[in-house]
Amino acid sequence: MSLKTAPTPQTQTTQVSAKRTRKRSLGIDKRPGFLTYGLLIAFFLGGAYPLWWSFVTGSASTGAFAGPLPPIFPGEAFLSNVAEVFSTIDFWAALGNSIAVSGVITISVVGFSTLAGYSFAKLRFRGKQGLLVFVIATLAVPTQLGIIPLFMMMKEFGWTGSIGAIMVPTLVTAFGVFFMRQYLVDVIPDELIEAARVDGASMIKTFWHVGVPAARPAMAILGLFTFMTAWTDYMWPLLVSPQNPTLQVALSQLQSAKYVDHTIVMAGAVMATIPLLLLFVLAGKQLVSGIMAGAVKG
């Protein structure tokens, strides 16, 4: 293949200019055509339609379901459906629980992961390699399967029914430690730490004044994803605290109470999706770059 285009010495200059034009015409960086945007719009609609449909259904009065197809535009009954949701489940308490659970888990995971990740990335100590391999190995271990003893423990301590019991199993994650380690290992120059040490900073001060500021972008990403994961978790909160539910558990209770009445269930699904949609509007860019950064690192 390369023979075809290999330039002869005489045609050097023409080759260069030819290369330029060809680069444009062969189109590495050419703006894509309508087909591409058409496909993207199709994907976008496919992603958004179920949400829209849930809103349309959630705003319909029960009678609107008589037709062969649900209406395309929202009805007027959304507020009354939402009122029905509020009278069936304690939405605000569940929302509060979800915020508390996800908030505490996020702070704990980010804090401990940064500390451990910094240690793995930048400090010297005996057994570091082995311990790091251990952390990486546990990334693939489905710890979720330990729910039976975990449940027994929570019962033994009398914690069932409290949001504390929901938080406990995910206060640290191996992924968090690995993620922070991968980030910090490149981002902090060793000289910076040495300089701080020579200036007389203790280890913890060095961590606080050198490690944490450098880690901030990764901490934000890790925090965002930890929050999402904690917020969407369903199995463990359902098991350990159905009487004091998180939003996801409350939503599933709404379903089992009202499964014959789709409009109410859909109104509840919409209400429960709003908080994360807000997060998406505010931090969608960070979510995108977080996923893409995690992929390259991981």
């Binding site: 849930s54 999706t273 994360l276 998406f280």
Partner: peptide, 18 residues
């Protein structure tokens, strides 16, 4: 990019209800 990520912010419970 945000557009293709949209479904990700709907929780599995809500997805299943829908």
């Amino acid at each position: 990019r945000m557009g293709v990520l949209l479904p990700y912010v709907v929780t599995p419970v809500a997805v299943t209800l829908i």
